[in-house]
Design a protein around this nucleic acid. Structure first.
Lengths: 139, 139
DNA sequence: CTTGTTGCAAACTCTTTGCACTTAG
DNA sequence: CTAAGTGCAAAGAGTTTGCAACAAG
């Protein structure tokens, strides 16, 4: 989970991180690309991907698999639950709820247990209102 | 999550289902393709994908996102926890542990809650023994 | 300086799809 | 019969990577 290399603070990296932390929408790489592009028009999608990868490997941000094929990113590296809309793919934080970190302690497995993710899924308020087109979702 | 169409029981479909249920390894589409190919040499990968899709949409099997980009499949449709090896990607069932279905009831969200998946991750016995090459993993 | 980083475009992986033919019910 | 399913090959989405030029420390 950690890179030995020193991460240089390039303008690109800084803006990516700033933009990601500015929102709580858990954007996809593409969405973040558009956000960053408004400030750095010449940035490339490859740079976005490379940075998101480095930053998540370093534990600075979180890479999320939220029920569809596209990865999403969370500027908040603290472990917390997420809920994903099966219709539109939107992802939201879940701040309440039971302590899932204890979950790991109660499990029987021959694996060396390192952690646990909980993904809730459902329908977001927007999609509940208007019956929009459905997206691919895998619980 | 359900198809209106009647699912015909073709030899391909039957063998795919049989092979999937024969193992507890949660194979990828490709792995299952190889397994099915031993019995039906002319089967196509497209057929594997189409059937896995239909069967999981029908709730006959489960499609899993287990920490890497490739989907995995579980012949056991009953909801249960999985643990994924961050090194080799192997996925195992977790039979013990707390009741995670209750989890949904304790959560505060403006989404219409439909369900919840728990993915544990760690290092499998095999990888713990020999320090093999690492794979991509996203909690 | 030196090594990490960037933009670009091409490559890659996994999955989906269009089509003409086949087949289960 | 006829709608569902198949094999094949091509297309698609999302992500990764090789390379030469660039820049942070």
């Amino acid at each position: 989970m950690q890179t030995a290399k020193t991460l240089r603070m390039t303008p690109q990296r800084r803006v990516i991180l700033e933009e990601l932390r500015k929102v709580d929408t858990h954007p996809t790489a593409d969405e973040l690309y558009e956000m960053v592009r408004k400030r750095l028009p010449k940035v490339s999608l490859g740079t976005i991907y490379r940075n998101l990868d480095l930053l998540s490997s370093d534990g600075v941000i979180q890479k999320l698999q939220a029920g569809n094929s596209q990865m999403r990113f969370d500027g908040n590296a603290e472990p917390h639950m997420h809920i994903s809309c099966i219709k539109c793919g939107r992802v939201a934080d879940v701040h309440s709820g039971p302590d899932t970190s204890a979950l790991s302690q109660e499990v029987e497995t021959d694996f060396i247990l390192l952690g646990c993710t909980v993904l809730l899924y459902g329908i977001c308020p927007q999609c509940a209102a208007d019956g929009k087109t459905s997206e691919r979702f895998t619980p």
